[in-house]
Computed example of a mutant assay.
Amino acid sequence: MLIGIMSDTHDNLSAIAKAVELFNREGVDLVIHAGDYVAPFVRRELLKLRAPLKGVFGNNDGEKKGLNKALGISEDILEVKADGMKIIVLHGTNEKVVDAFAKSQLYDVIIRGHTHRYEIRETGRSILVNPGEVCGYVTGIKSVAFLDTKKREVKIINLDTEEPLGFMSL
């Protein structure tokens, strides 16, 4: 299964459109959003995804009822199982919680956002993936990640250049 991972879109519709276009072109089977959509009008671009969207709320998602109605988002923490892999998704506002999930070794992959910085980090048997920010507002780098559960690899891609920013085999 090929999973597209995004976070911190922060209402940047043109950047969201680039991410959606890339995910559709690559034929992802699922898209995971690690929070901070910000407003329900992002639905306009996210509905263009050909794959199902699952995600969690972030700390800037104040319109939770609207996001729930627009996108079906209803959780702060989400568990996903794919090809025998256990995946936990959270925004990652509290570093102690992120670290606790990593140290627990209960999950193959921990997907988080919030920092706006892309990262792939191994912690024991768990891999922590932060796709960075789709919006590009903080770092100037618009990025997403791909998790290939069959090949057991993660890569982070710059949305503007489509060049790889990071890679790890699981």
Rank of each mutant, 00 (worst) to 15 (best):
I111M: 04
K69V: 08
V134K: 11
E95R: 13
A100I: 05
A82T: 06
V80T: 00
S74D: 15
D99W: 11
C135W: 05
I77D: 02
R112V: 14
K65S: 13
V129Y: 04
M85R: 10
T123G: 07
I77L: 09
R125H: 10
N68Q: 14
L106W: 04
A70Y: 09
H116K: 13
H114Y: 14
R125C: 11
K103L: 14
F57Q: 10
N68H: 13
G72V: 05
V144D: 00
G140H: 03
A70I: 07
A82G: 01
I87F: 06
L71N: 03
R117W: 12
I77Q: 11
F146K: 00
N60E: 03
V144K: 01
I73Y: 01
Y118N: 14
I87D: 02
L78S: 07
G136H: 09
K86D: 02
T93G: 12
K150R: 08
D83G: 04
L78N: 02
S74G: 15
K81D: 07
Y137P: 06
E63F: 14
D148V: 00
H114G: 03
Y118A: 08
I120V: 13
S104Y: 06
K151N: 03
K64V: 05
E119M: 15
S74T: 13
I141P: 04
N94K: 15
G62D: 06
C135S: 15
E133C: 09
M85Y: 11
Q105V: 04
R152T: 02
H91K: 11
C135Y: 06
K54F: 11
L53A: 08
V109P: 07
V109A: 07
H91S: 05
E153C: 07
G62M: 09
L71W: 11
R125I: 11
V138E: 15
K64F: 08
R121C: 08
G62E: 12
R121M: 12
I87C: 01
G136E: 03
K142R: 15
G72C: 11
T123R: 12
L53F: 10
R125N: 14
G132T: 05
V80P: 03
E79D: 12
L147C: 02
K150C: 01
G92C: 06
T139F: 00
V154S: 00
H116I: 04
D83T: 00
K103G: 14
N59Y: 01
L106F: 09
Y118K: 13
L147G: 03
N94H: 12
H114Q: 06
G136C: 09
H114K: 10
I127M: 12
G66E: 05
V98A: 10
P131K: 11
